[in-house]
Amino acid sequence: MDGNGRWATSRGWPRLVGHRRGAERVREIVRACPDLGIRWLTVYAFSTENWKRSTEEVLGLMAIFARYIEREADRLAVEGVRLRFIGDRSRLDPKLQAMMAGIEARTAPGTRLNLTVAINYGGRDEIARAARSVARAVAEGRLAPEAVTEASFAAHLDTADLPDPDLVIRTSGETRTSNFLPWQAAYAEYEFTQTLWPDFTAAELGAIVARFGNRERRFGGVVRA
Results as ranks from 00 to 15, higher is better:
residue 146 E to Y: 11
residue 139 A to R: 09
residue 54 S to T: 15
residue 124 R to M: 08
residue 113 L to R: 03
residue 32 A to M: 05
residue 83 L to F: 02
residue 86 I to D: 06
residue 111 T to G: 00
residue 160 A to H: 14
residue 102 G to Q: 08
residue 122 G to T: 03
residue 123 G to Y: 12
residue 56 E to M: 08
residue 71 R to V: 07
residue 35 D to L: 12
residue 145 P to N: 12
residue 44 Y to F: 15
residue 134 V to N: 02
residue 35 D to E: 15
residue 51 W to N: 01
residue 99 M to Q: 14
residue 81 V to E: 07
residue 68 Y to Q: 10
residue 158 D to E: 05
residue 135 A to H: 01
residue 162 L to M: 12
residue 112 R to M: 00
residue 41 L to G: 01
residue 151 A to L: 14
residue 58 V to M: 02
residue 154 A to R: 15
residue 157 L to D: 03
residue 168 V to L: 15
residue 117 V to C: 01
residue 167 L to Y: 14
residue 34 P to V: 04
residue 49 E to W: 09
residue 151 A to C: 13
residue 163 P to T: 01
residue 68 Y to I: 03
residue 76 L to Y: 02
residue 127 I to T: 04
residue 174 E to H: 14
residue 108 A to W: 01
residue 38 I to P: 04
residue 78 V to M: 11
residue 167 L to G: 10
residue 94 P to Y: 11
residue 102 G to F: 01
residue 93 D to H: 09
residue 58 V to E: 01
residue 52 K to R: 14
residue 159 T to D: 08
residue 161 D to S: 14
residue 143 L to A: 01
residue 34 P to H: 06
residue 97 Q to C: 14
residue 150 E to F: 05
residue 170 R to Q: 13
residue 50 N to E: 03
residue 38 I to F: 08
residue 119 I to M: 09
residue 110 G to W: 06
residue 104 E to H: 02
residue 175 T to Y: 13
residue 41 L to D: 03
residue 83 L to E: 03
residue 160 A to L: 08
residue 67 R to F: 01
residue 175 T to A: 11
residue 111 T to Y: 00
residue 85 F to G: 09
residue 74 D to F: 11
residue 114 N to P: 01
residue 158 D to T: 03
residue 67 R to C: 06
residue 173 G to H: 12
residue 81 V to Y: 05
residue 107 T to C: 05
residue 42 T to W: 12
residue 175 T to W: 13
residue 152 S to V: 06
residue 104 E to W: 04
residue 40 W to Y: 14
residue 38 I to G: 05
residue 164 D to W: 13
residue 46 F to R: 05
residue 49 E to D: 13
residue 34 P to C: 04
residue 58 V to C: 02
residue 123 G to P: 08
residue 96 L to Y: 02
residue 118 A to S: 11
residue 88 D to L: 08
residue 132 R to F: 04
residue 171 T to C: 08
residue 166 D to K: 13
residue 109 P to V: 05
residue 67 R to E: 15
residue 144 A to P: 02
residue 55 T to C: 00
residue 47 S to W: 07
residue 147 A to P: 12
residue 102 G to R: 12
residue 101 A to L: 12
residue 81 V to Q: 03
residue 177 T to I: 15
residue 35 D to I: 04
residue 119 I to K: 00
residue 149 T to P: 10
residue 176 R to V: 05
residue 124 R to P: 00
residue 128 A to L: 11
residue 86 I to N: 03
residue 123 G to K: 07
residue 44 Y to C: 09
residue 48 T to Q: 00
residue 119 I to H: 00
residue 115 L to K: 02
residue 144 A to D: 13
residue 146 E to T: 14
residue 144 A to Y: 06
residue 89 R to F: 09
residue 72 E to D: 10
residue 92 L to K: 09
residue 152 S to F: 10
residue 132 R to H: 09
residue 151 A to R: 15
residue 89 R to E: 14
residue 71 R to S: 12
residue 132 R to P: 00
residue 101 A to I: 00
residue 157 L to A: 05
residue 59 L to N: 12
residue 154 A to V: 13
residue 37 G to I: 05
residue 35 D to T: 13
residue 176 R to F: 10
residue 133 S to C: 10
residue 99 M to T: 04
residue 167 L to A: 13
residue 117 V to N: 00
residue 88 D to G: 07
residue 172 S to G: 04
residue 131 A to V: 07
residue 161 D to E: 15
residue 136 R to V: 06
residue 162 L to S: 03
residue 89 R to D: 12
residue 105 A to Y: 01
residue 118 A to Q: 08
residue 162 L to A: 06
residue 63 A to W: 00
residue 159 T to R: 08
